[in-house]
């Protein structure tokens, strides 16, 4: 059986980069199924969490499940590429 998709986005404060990443994150929400969970961690507020996950760069998007974990670094400009790397369902304009 396939595990549910769980995504965590690590951002650093309210920067332009963070906002771009958050917008892209929201758009991902629309295309991934409803059983997927989304979480945002601001490393400035919660550095311990960044420590545990050993995050270096921000923004970093982590697909926690399904295992194995996968990561993408950057402001997620190219969403198609993000979906491909994280093996998320492709954006299908006809089902929307």
């Amino acid at each position: 059986m396939t595990q549910a998709i769980h995504l965590t986005l690590y951002i650093c404060g309210e920067t332009v980069r963070s906002q771009n990443a958050l917008r892209a994150f929201d758009r991902l929400r629309d295309t991934v199924g409803s059983d997927a969970t989304f979480r945002v961690v601001d490393v400035v507020v919660d550095p311990d969490e960044a420590e545990t996950a050993r995050i270096l760069a921000t923004p970093t998007l982590v697909r926690e499940t399904p295992q194995p974990q996968r990561r993408v670094i950057g402001d997620l400009e190219d969403l198609d590429q993000v979906r491909k790397i994280l093996s998320l369902p492709p954006y299908d304009r006809f089902t929307r």
Partner: peptide, 19 residues
């Protein structure tokens, strides 16, 4: 392994600095 993903777009080392 797996810690660094692919790089798509601009980034900074904000997480490192925060840690």
């Amino acid at each position: 392994p797996l810690d660094d993903g692919e790089i798509l777009g601009a980034f900074d080392l904000g997480a490192l600095l925060a840690r």
